[in-house]
């Protein structure tokens, strides 16, 4: 497939924590906020559960972009989970380059349960970013 060719349907994965970002995504739905359909949500209890290994395996396996969305810093249901996630994924972003994966394919952010519109915006923008990056098939420059 061509880079950003028309018709490129990226495969995007969003890990959402049960307490904030998943609820924010629910609110986006309840509010009927429309957004691109190219992402799939996997629910975890906390952003801290998202193993860097999952992200690497997803990106190495053919997923075009991964989002990790947790509660805002300070609001994690498990006190400090998102602090951990933040540190882990900052590190992972650096490592992705070494693995030949464009770090822009990983996006980490925070969405509260009341931020349906923010969820919509983040998803829409990330889908755009990934479309511009084009399909991901293994190491890139």
């Amino acid at each position: 497939m061509e880079k950003s060719a028309d018709g490129f349907k990226p495969k995007i994965l969003a890990f959402c924590c049960n307490w904030c970002s998943y609820a924010g995504a629910d609110l986006a739905g309840v509010s009927r906020l429309q957004m691109p359909s190219d992402f799939r949500v996997i629910r975890v209890m906390c952003s801290a559960r998202v193993s860097p290994e999952w992200v690497i395996k997803a990106l190495a396996g053919g997923v075009d972009g991964v989002m990790v969305l947790g509660c805002h810093i300070g609001d994690c249901h498990y006190i400090s989970g998102n602090h951990r996630a933040k540190k882990r994924f900052a590190l992972l972003k650096e490592m992705l380059g070494y693995l030949g994966i464009n770090p822009a394919r990983l996006y980490v952010d925070w969405v509260s349960a009341s931020e349906g519109a923010r969820f919509q915006q983040i998803v829409t923008e990330f889908v755009e970013t990934v479309k511009e990056l084009g399909p991901h098939h293994g190491p890139e420059g």
Partner: peptide, 10 residues
């Protein structure tokens, strides 16, 4: 254990 899973990822 409250089931956050942080230890699992770590």
């Amino acid at each position: 254990c409250k089931g956050c899973g942080s230890c699992v990822a770590a």
